[in-house]
Design a protein around this nucleic acid. Structure first.
Length: 264
DNA sequence: TGAGTATGTTCAG
DNA sequence: TGAACCTACTCAT
C-alpha cells in the first residue's frame, strides 16, 4: 500500500541495495528512456523519501523522482534479472540486486531546484524527525474543510493516505465530516502523536496495523489472519467496538469509512 | 474475455 | 467537481 511508510521502506531498501555503487538504469517500456539514459551507470549517492515521494540522488546531481500513485509498485529480483514482464517503466540493476518499477504516476529526472520545488508543496512528514506539527495545526484550526479532507491533503501532512486517514479518525472518535476548525488542540495533539506512532509501526512492519488487541479478542492485529483495520473497506460490517454498521461515502473523490456511533 | 476495483495526483471547466 | 491517467489483479460471464 503506497502510503508514506511504504516509500520510506523503499528508500531504505534502495539505499542498502544500491547506495554507493553504480546502477544500471533502463526503461524497458520506453517511457522513461530519456531519463534513464541520464543516470544509467552513475553511482547512487542516496535514496530518500518525503511523504509519498521517493528520490534517488545520483552522483553529479541528477535526481530521479518517483511517485507511485494508485498503481505504482517495485518488484525486486536477484541479478541476473529475468526478462522484463509487463510495462516496466524503470529497471535498476546493481551488483546483486535489481528492481522493476511499474505503473508510477511520476518517474522523472529532476535537478536539485526542481526537487526542492516538489518538497516545498508538502506539509511535514510524520516519519521525519524534524516534522513540525504546529504547521498542520495552524492550517486545520483555521479551516472550514472537513478533517477527513484535510488529513489527505499532502500540503497539510505529507504521507497520509486513505487507510491512515480513516483509521486515525476512528481511533480518535472523530467524524470525518467535522470541520477542521471544530477540533480542539488536545484532539489534534493526540491525533498527531498517534499518527506518528502508527506510521512508525507501518514502517517497521511493512504493513498498516491499527487494531488494538482488546478489539480483536486479544489477538494483536499483526498476527497472521487477524484484522488490521477498524473501518477501512469494512462498509456494511459491524463496528469492532460497538457493533453499529460501518458507513461509507465519497468525500472529495475518495472513499471514506466511519462508524456513526463511535465517531462524532 | 471483459468489467470492476484500488492505497493518488493533476488538470480542465 | 469530474475526468484522465497509470497497471495489475479479482471476479463474473
Amino acid at each position: 500500500m503506497p502510503e508514506g511508510h511504504t516509500l520510506h521502506r523503499l528508500a531504505r531498501l534502495h539505499q542498502r541495495k544500491f547506495g554507493g555503487q553504480p546502477v544500471g538504469v533502463s526503461s524497458p517500456q520506453g517511457r522513461f528512456a530519456d531519463g534513464a539514459a541520464i543516470v544509467d551507470g552513475r553511482v547512487l549517492r542516496r535514496a530518500s523519501a518525503y511523504g509519498k515521494h521517493l528520490f534517488h540522488h545520483y552522483a553529479g546531481g541528477p535526481i530521479v523522482h518517483v511517485h507511485l500513485g494508485l498503481y505504482g509498485a517495485f518488484t525486486d529480483a536477484e541479478v541476473p534479472m529475468p526478462l522484463p514482464v509487463g510495462e516496466v517503466r524503470m529497471r535498476m540493476v546493481g551488483a546483486d540486486f535489481g528492481t522493476d518499477l511499474r505503473g508510477p504516476t511520476a518517474c522523472e529526472v529532476l535537478d536539485e531546484a526542481q526537487a526542492d520545488a516538489v518538497l516545498a508543496r508538502l506539509g511535514p512528514d510524520p516519519l521525519r524527525r524534524d516534522a513540525d506539527p504546529a504547521r498542520p495545526w495552524k492550517r486545520i484550526t483555521k479551516s472550514q474543510r472537513q478533517i477527513g479532507s484535510l488529513l489527505m491533503d499532502q500540503a497539510v501532512i505529507a504521507g497520509v493516505g486513505n487507510v491512515y486517514r480513516n483509521e486515525l479518525l476512528f481511533r480518535h472518535g472523530i467524524d470525518p465530516y467535522r470541520p477542521g476548525k471544530a477540533l480542539d488542540e488536545a484532539e489534534f495533539d493526540a491525533l498527531w502523536t498517534d499518527l506518528v506512532e502508527l506510521m512508525r509501526v507501518g514502517y517497521a512492519r511493512g504493513r498498516i496495523h491499527v487494531v488494538r488487541p482488546e478489539h480483536d479478542r486479544g489477538a494483536p492485529s499483526y498476527a497472521p489472519g487477524r484484522p488490521r483495520t477498524y473501518v477501512y473497506r469494512r462498509a456494511g460490517d459491524a463496528c469492532r467496538v460497538c457493533g453499529t454498521t460501518v458507513l461509507t461515502a465519497v468525500l472529495e473523490g475518495r472513499n471514506v469509512f466511519w462508524c456513526p456511533t463511535c465517531q462524532r
